[in-house]
Structures are given as structure tokens and as C-alpha cells.
């Protein structure tokens, strides 16, 4: 099993994800520069956080239009799991692989903060190791993380069980107080309808070792690896 970690110019969480996959989980993972267009030999991909193209134009907009995204689309069509974290989530919405958009935070400044998330769907390749309703701790760090979609799209996401993570308080309640960025219905992460592409604003790789404050995020990567094993 091999997992690709895709690097655009300005990606800055690539080496952090590599550390977690390789050193913490002992999984074969590799950094792939966006000019290398072939992803056929990989079984899954991570689009990590950072500032691809400096967030110029719009966060994720330029990266979403690079040729490597065609290879990512091919992976997706083959049913392989793809996870986009923070800027990676922005790239996935900009490329149309996920619904909605990430607008500027309601308080329009960058916000780095530990948040509580509720796992609302455990029937995905990325959350099988959780129990439904689990409250986990993972930090966010973004200026454009305010998830937006129009009301009918939000209804569809809810109806199809595509909302995977919501921002909550430590008791699991999703309200305005526990919403760090103004996201619609406290949405922190969603999955596509064929359930192999997930995007989330919080950074699970930053919560994968206890010494950093939490290892709740590790289960996301572990679930993904479990899923790849079932495919093989």
C-alpha cells in the first residue's frame, strides 16, 4: 500500500502528514510534487494544508486547476480514498470534487485554535474507527474555513449523511458559541456522495501524537488505511 501526499508550491503541512503516516503509523507514503502527473501507483492520496500558490486569487483556486488534479480525479473515479485537509479541502471544493465553498471566517482573521468536533458519520473510509457521536479534539488554523453552501445543498448534505464532522463544545453540542468560523450548521468536514473523498478544515495530523495535545486525529488516517486494505 502506498499513499501519495501531494505538494503544491506553498503547501506546508506535507512533511507533517508524512511524519504521521511514516513514523507514527509505519505506512508507506511519499511526497509527490505537483508536476509529477502520474498517481497510478498509489492507493490513496492526501492533499495537505498550507497556502498553495500563496492563496493568491482565492484559497485553493489555482492548485485546483493544475494537471495533477486530473490524476486525482482518476483516483477518485477508481474508488480510491482521497482526503483534503484545510487548504486541501479548499482545493477539493475549488476543483468540484466536493460541494460548497470555504469563505472568509466570520471574524475575518486567521484563527489557530484547538476545537472539539463531533463525528456524525462513522460509515466512511475515514471514520470507521470512531463511534457515532464521539467528541474529539483537533486544532484548526485558517482564515478561509467558513463552510458555505446554499440551503438546498446543505439539505442534500444532511439528507445523504455527508456531513462527517461538526464543530461542537466539549459536551457535543453544536451551537454558535462552538462555531469558530461561521460555518453553516457548524460543518467542519464533508464527504462526497460516493463516499471516497473527504475534506475537513481541522488538521488531524496535528492531533496524532499525545505529546502535541491529542491523538484523536490518528484514527482518521488509520480508518483510511483500514479501508485501503479492504480494497486489496
Amino acid at each position: 500500500m502506498r499513499i501519495a501526499i501531494i505538494q503544491f508550491g506553498g503547501t506546508n503541512c506535507d512533511r507533517d502528514v508524512l511524519h504521521v503516516l511514516k513514523n507514527v503509523m509505519n505506512v508507506d507514503a511519499e511526497l509527490v510534487w505537483f508536476k509529477d502527473k502520474n498517481l497510478d501507483c498509489f492507493d490513496g492520496a492526501v492533499i495537505p494544508g498550507g497556502f498553495s500558490y500563496g492563496d493568491y486569487l482565492r484559497a485553493g483556486a489555482i492548485a485546483a486547476r493544475t494537471p495533477i488534479m486530473d490524476s486525482v480525479r482518476k483516483m477518485v473515479s477508481e474508488g480510491k480514498p482521497v482526503i483534503g485537509i484545510c487548504n486541501g479541502f479548499q482545493v477539493l471544493t475549488e476543483s468540484g470534487l466536493l460541494d460548497g465553498a470555504l469563505a472568509t471566517n466570520s471574524y475575518p482573521k486567521f484563527l489557530c485554535k484547538w476545537t472539539h468536533l463531533r463525528v456524525d458519520n462513522t460509515d466512511t473510509p475515514f471514520t470507521s474507527r470512531f463511534e457515532k457521536g464521539d467528541v474529539i479534539q483537533i486544532p484548526i488554523a485558517h482564515k478561509e474555513g467558513n463552510f458555505y453552501a446554499d440551503q438546498s445543498a446543505i439539505s442534500d448534505l444532511n439528507k445523504n449523511n455527508q456531513v462527517v464532522f461538526r464543530y461542537v463544545d466539549e459536551d457535543g453540542t453544536a451551537d454558535d458559541e462552538s462555531n469558530p468560523n461561521g460555518s453553516k450548521e457548524n460543518i467542519a468536514g464533508i464527504i462526497n456522495s460516493s463516499r471516497n473523498v473527504i475534506g475537513l478544515m481541522p488538521h488531524p495530523e496535528r492531533a496524532s501524537e499525545k505529546v502535541l495535545g491529542s491523538d484523536d486525529g490518528l484514527k482518521i488516517f488509520q480508518s483510511m488505511v483500514d479501508y485501503i486494505q479492504t480494497l486489496q
Binding site: D16, G49, C112, A141, E209
Partner: peptide, 29 residues
Amino acid sequence: IYSQYDHEVQIRTAVKPGDDSGVLRISGN
């Protein structure tokens, strides 16, 4: 102030800003 800084990137920050000192993991513990 410090919530505007990405103080977690590079996953070394064991003690976060707002404390007496920052503590960074370098090699093992």
C-alpha cells in the same frame, strides 16, 4: 494575538503560546 499565528504547523509545539515558555519537540522526547 497568538490565535492569529499558526503555532501548530511542523507538529513540534508541545507547549503552546500564552505560557511561560514555548516547548518544542526536536528528537524523540
